[in-house]
């Protein structure tokens, strides 16, 4: 349910960067979202449609979401493995439980495109 506030934040950040880069209307946004952030692509897209009416976007503006899998690294043996959906992290190599998350928590605007002012 925090997708709405995440989108509001994205609009703010895009607004600033568009001004700095002399962009008038944004046409494309590329967002990277790790699965472990619990931010759902569908809910993000819905929230984006709400904010799309703002001045900084062209009516045809599009949001692409690139989802990243959750990947863990075992602190005992160092092997990396992708996390099961239930996040019950057990190292498949050594059965170790002390693990660190190396991917899956991403939540950033990779890039955007727009028309020059």
């Amino acid at each position: 349910m925090h997708e709405m506030s995440l989108m509001a934040e994205m609009i703010e950040l895009l607004g600033c960067s568009a001004r700095e880069n002399n962009i008038d209307k944004i046409i494309k946004v590329h967002l990277v979202v790790g699965k472990m952030t619990m931010a759902l692509p569908d809910a993000l897209t819905m929230a984006f449609d709400v904010f799309k009416t703002e001045d900084i976007f062209a009516p045809s503006a599009e949001l692409t979401i690139e989802q990243r899998e959750t990947i863990a690294k075992c602190r005992t043996c160092g092997s990396t493995f992708s996390a099961p959906d239930n996040y019950l992290f057990i190292c498949p190599t050594c059965q170790g439980l002390r693990i660190e998350i190396i991917s899956g928590r991403e939540l950033y605007i990779a890039s955007f495109e727009g028309e020059e002012a």
Binding site: M10, N22, L107
Partner: peptide, 16 residues
């Protein structure tokens, strides 16, 4: 002209 900006800014950056 179309401009492309490589941003790499986290949506949680200002919270952090």
């Amino acid at each position: 002209m179309t401009i492309r900006v490589e941003l790499g800014t986290s949506l949680l950056a200002r919270n952090e």
